[in-house]
Design a protein around this nucleic acid. Structure first.
Length: 113
DNA sequence: CGTGTGACGCGAG
DNA sequence: CCTCGCGCCACAC
């Protein structure tokens, strides 16, 4: 046949990239965080970190979007778009922030995805 | 089907 | 350690 479009080499081929992002993020345990790039790489799309962020912006309520941060362990949201809410949710799960507002990924990062 | 867009990442300076 | 700049890529129009 002739796949008109690049098909990912896994069983989730029928799902959209966004759907696969959500499925993966849902696996992140309470009190742990993952990075945008980490999710992208896990889906076989190393350069799609920004797309993961976009997916988070429009994600379903069941998805723990607050457990996704950038590679520096910082919240990527701007104060006006939800920075505070994400920080509050993470703190409620026991995630600590340093004085610069960063999370220690070696401690809270979840590598199980 | 070309173009714009963004909750990123990473190398350089 | 910090800032700046450019590449990335799925998706909506």
């Amino acid at each position: 046949m002739k796949p008109k479009r690049r098909v990912p080499a896994d069983s989730s081929e029928s799902l959209t990239f966004f759907a696969r992002v959500y499925a993966l993020v849902r696996k992140t345990p309470r009190g742990r965080v993952v990075t945008y790039g980490q999710v992208a790489r896990a889906l076989g799309a190393p350069g799609a970190a920004r797309t993961v962020g976009w997916a988070m912006r429009v994600c379903p309520d069941q998805v723990p979007w607050h457990r996704v941060v950038n590679a520096r362990g910082e919240i990527s949201l701007r104060p006006a778009t939800g920075y505070h809410e994400q920080r509050v949710r993470l703190k409620a799960e026991g995630v600590r922030f340093d004085r610069a507002g960063r999370i220690d990924l070696n401690k809270y990062g979840f590598g199980g995805i």
